[in-house]
């Protein structure tokens, strides 16, 4: 007796609407700018959220932010894999953009692990062709003169 099996492929292209808050953030990325959002309690969220998890209230005004920030924690990727944002060793890092109260996850192109430290300053490197995606930020790079 044969016990039969067959592949079962399930595939569909869904749609998603970003809504006004995330849509605005992605549009700013496409323009090569960072934009956070202020909560009703005055905190600046970067990246923005539609609703403040702390209070449940809708977030408010957009807050233009500089492309610079500080690494709050990091992990070194010695052997990048396909699909990673960089094809050479890099750090995954939480980066708190200047003027923001929260940190965002992105890649730091520092060359070597000993060039990384918590508290180091980084700045954004933009992709030349941008589409409105978090990957419009190619990565962050150490600010010149930042010695480990």
């Amino acid at each position: 007796m044969d016990v039969l099996s067959a592949p079962y492929v399930l595939e569909y292209t869904y749609q998603r609407s970003t809504g006004p808050v995330i849509g605005r953030f992605l549009t700013a990325l496409r323009d090569g700018r960072l934009e956070g959002v202020r909560t009703t309690t005055g905190r600046v969220l970067m990246p923005p959220l539609e609703y403040d998890p702390a209070t449940g209230e809708a977030t408010g005004e957009p807050v233009p932010l500089p492309p610079d920030g500080v690494v709050t924690t990091w992990a070194w990727v010695a052997t990048p894999r396909p699909g990673h944002p960089l094809d050479r060793p890099f750090a995954w890092a939480l980066i708190r953009i200047d003027g923001a109260d929260t940190a965002m996850l992105h890649a730091v192109d520092a060359g070597a692990a000993d060039a990384m430290r918590t508290g180091m300053r980084v700045t954004a490197r933009w992709r030349a062709e941008r589409t409105g995606s978090i990957l419009d930020l190619a990565c962050f790079v150490p600010v010149a003169g930042e010695a480990p």
Partner: peptide
């Protein structure tokens, strides 16, 4: 309702 996200709709 393409003006809102799914969270925005239920909200």
């Amino acid at each position: 309702r393409q003006d809102v996200s799914i969270p925005g709709l239920i909200r």
